[in-house]
């Protein structure tokens, strides 16, 4: 049996919409899964990323755990594919970049409406929240970027099926949309 490619995926500060769009490839996903093996991914239950052929990242970088995860992905994945508006420009999470982190925490945990026992969470087990939200490509090198909110399933398919076949992905220009 031919060697199966290993794919890992993760969702950082995002809504899992890009993963839903990946699943939107419908029955083609079965074709894909016959040719690949999943490593760490929300689609299975593996917690640590192993050496992989393709890493897929959705979501923006908003806390210290996100930074650790994308560095692991970059170190362990030969090819890094980044999905969606949040990962590529901060997207909805980056709306908080209009305010300082202190202002965000103050509003969310102290001053916001209907709050009781106001306290800003702080614990060594919690990841630290970054000063602002960053796009993935500002922290690690990205090989392929698929924009969209979410990227169209057909575009994800075009990219992944080409990579699995060992080819350079060519994206149809009409599938390139930013929302």
């Amino acid at each position: 049996m031919a060697h199966k490619l290993k794919i890992a995926s993760t969702s950082l500060a995002g809504c899992f919409g890009c993963h839903m769009s990946l699943l939107d490839c419908d029955e083609k996903i079965i074709e894909l899964l016959q040719q690949v093996e999943l490593s760490r991914s929300p689609l299975c239950d593996i917690k640590q990323v192993a050496d992989c052929d393709i890493g897929i990242i959705e979501g923006a970088v908003a806390n210290s755990e996100n930074v650790e995860v994308i560095r692991q992905f970059r170190a362990q994945c030969k090819t890094l594919v980044v999905l969606g508006a949040c990962a590529l420009n901060g997207g909805i999470p980056a709306l908080r970049n209009q305010y300082s982190l202190a202002e965000c925490l103050q509003e969310s945990y102290i001053d916001g409406m209907g709050l009781e026992n106001q306290l800003i969470p702080q614990d060594e087990d919690l990841p630290e929240i970054l000063d602002q939200v960053y796009p993935v490509q500002q922290l690690v090198k990205v090989d392929y970027a698929l924009p969209g909110c979410p990227p169209r399933a057909d575009m994800i398919w075009q990219c992944l099926s080409a990579l699995v076949a060992g080819q350079q992905p060519e994206l149809s220009s009409e599938l390139i949309r930013y929302d």
């Binding site: 420009n89 901060g90 980056a94 490509q137 924009p147």
Partner: peptide, 21 residues
């Protein structure tokens, strides 16, 4: 702006984002 950038197939901006306030 969005539509021109999509037409020109801009997939990713890799300059530092300014996030002006």
């Amino acid at each position: 702006l969005q539509s021109v950038a999509e037409f020109c197939e801009l997939l990713m901006a890799d300059l530092p984002f300014q996030y002006p306030r």
